[in-house]
Write a protein that binds this DNA or RNA. Structure first.
Lengths: 234, 234
DNA sequence: CGGCAAGCAATTGCATGCACTTTTTGCCTT
DNA sequence: AAGGCAAAAAGTGCATGCAATTGCTTGCCG
């Protein structure tokens, strides 16, 4: 095969495949139930089947793909029940992160959170959904890291990524942007007060609202393929 | 190679390898930091390197092994910080499960929980650590399932298994058996009352105590393995 | 015309081989 | 004797090849 795989960045081929396929799944580019043919994927990425197989195995371990022995792999199909359970988990995980953040964030972390949050207010007024999305992701990531608990952070990030294709729909709801900011504000305020319980409750409510908003879209159809590569918006 | 791999049960070779190696890790038979040589493992289990590699990749995705590119795999080494974070996560996860269980368990599930719990009291009086351990596992599993949330259940089971080697020693502590039962009792009582908050708090406290008990052992040394170094295929 | 079975194409699962990277060893220099 | 360098050994990463399984097609029989 071609000696040097051109212009690909870091890590082993398998890692690249995991990221490449995983991205396409969480962005909805590959739809749930879609067949993942080893040979085609190998050809598509110009590698042999071996790294593709390893990548599919790892993605299966992560729950992003489903593998039937001798019958190939498909993008994991999430039932309504499982989707609901993931959203509920997400709410609880975010609540924990927010509570811990309120109790444990360093003053530097609190400052950074507040500053970024206030900065994002401008984007709401401008209705800059794309840019707000970036701040939103950053905002939540700060909460996860602020919990000062590596394992919870890991679980939360993982759950969040698996929900990504289902969250993007809420975009469409009018006024969601402003409401989202207000909900974030409630979380920030509670964290600044050091009120863990209030922060947790605010975070849980925030996610619940996102969940309901998404459920509207997720009701009938599975997530639609993405034209953009952006992921989050709550 | 030998045509039929003798007396190994189900699934593909890779699945068997994942279970085999994973078991050896969570039972402490393979110690953290121990080198996992692909060739040796392949020879031990009488398969080629390919399924071993895939298994190691999946175990790496699960966090049980650590893989350095081009430098082989080792059993994941957990720092004190990460161990603490996992125990803390465990406490929070169990708290969530208990709270949800209190709110959602069917009457059949409540009945089963209570019955099993009462039955295990006998084992405490007999100081039957081994048997109690079995009931203990079953007890917690009931809580996870009773939460009626597949994703939280998954995360909890996974976290629990990663903590398994560190929890092992706790029942050696004198009087721990009886205390454990009493803590379970508090959880059961709260669940029967349908008091989610109390159940959550009781579960969190329970895990915290286990965590502290385990920390005693984990303090100096990594979890102990079987004294022999031989690793044989099952 | 429908159902069933045998053959066939397609695809997965695993073994093997080779190239490249890391690590070790042994020799040479200072 | 210690340090550094180079060549060899060991081990990982990926490609390829072959056996085995699946499910699809086709032809036969009821």
């Amino acid at each position: 095969m071609s000696g040097k795989r051109s212009l690909i960045r870091s890590g082993t081929t398998v890692d690249q495949m995991v990221r490449a396929i995983g991205d396409r799944i969480v962005t909805g580019f590959l739809r749930p139930g879609e067949k993942l043919d080893e040979t085609s994927l190998a050809a598509r990425f110009d590698v042999s089947r071996t790294p593709v197989r390893e990548a599919l195995g790892q993605l299966s371990a992560m729950g992003l793909v489903e593998r039937r022995p001798n019958r190939g792999a498909i993008v994991a199909v999430v039932t309504q029940e499982h989707l609901a359970s993931m959203f509920e988990s997400m709410a609880e995980l975010e609540a924990i992160c927010a509570r811990f953040s309120a109790e444990r964030m360093t003053s530097a972390e609190r400052r950074a959170l507040e500053i970024e949050h206030q900065a994002s207010a401008r984007l709401v007024r401008l209705r800059a959904e794309e840019d707000y999305e970036y701040f939103n992701t950053e905002f939540h990531s700060r909460l996860y890291r602020g919990a000062h608990n590596g394992h919870i952070c890991e679980m939360t990030v993982m759950t969040r990524s698996r929900l990504a294709p289902f969250r993007r729909a809420q975009f469409m709801l009018p006024g969601r942007l402003a409401k989202s900011w207000q909900e974030h504000d409630a979380i920030v305020t509670a964290i600044m007060r050091g009120d863990g319980n209030a922060a947790g409750k605010a975070a849980r409510d925030h996610v619940s609202i996102v969940s309901e908003a998404s459920a509207v879209f997720a009701a009938g159809d599975q997530p639609k393929a993405a034209s953009t590569t952006s992921v989050t918006a709550d």
